[in-house]
Amino acid sequence: MPDQRTTLPAAELARTVVFAAFIAVLGLFPGFYLGGSGVPIVVQNIGPLLVGALLGAKRGTASVVLMLAVTAIGLPLLSGGRGGIASFIGPSGGFLIGWIASALVTGLVATRFARPGLPALLLATVAGLVADYVIGIPFLGFYTGDFGAAAVQSLVFLPGDAVKVVLAALIASVVHRALPTVVGRKG
């Protein structure tokens, strides 16, 4: 592993900021429908997985935290122009807060490998998605007063999320191959 101190704090700050913005820009893409399920699949929650897989746990998590903080203070950066603290208080707020865990876990798993290839990245993104569910489902269950029902309700997102997990791993593996020295430093 290269020495962490070779990167300047300014460069780290810039990456955190730019990738927070990256997740926000993913929210500009319209959602699409998968298999007529009626549940819109938004592109944005692929962001925490990608950021974790590309920047590692520390900076990836920092980016997600910054993006969520900027959203919480009232900028409409979530899919569909949503924002403000209402999005965090609502029933699906746990899945939003879970993005932090998502980036953290994806980053931790991805950086365990010196040169993360597709299988390693797939493992990392799956673990990241599970981390999001681990926070999101109990939150929803607390809201509705029924944990089992919350788990069943969340199943509708599974097909879309499965696609996103594979896409995130594919994209991250190509970027890692294109820029092996730039991304994925431990940190």
Partner: peptide
């Protein structure tokens, strides 16, 4: 995006 981050840095 990464290039822009480097420039900003």
């Amino acid at each position: 995006t990464l290039r822009h981050a480097d420039e900003l840095g």
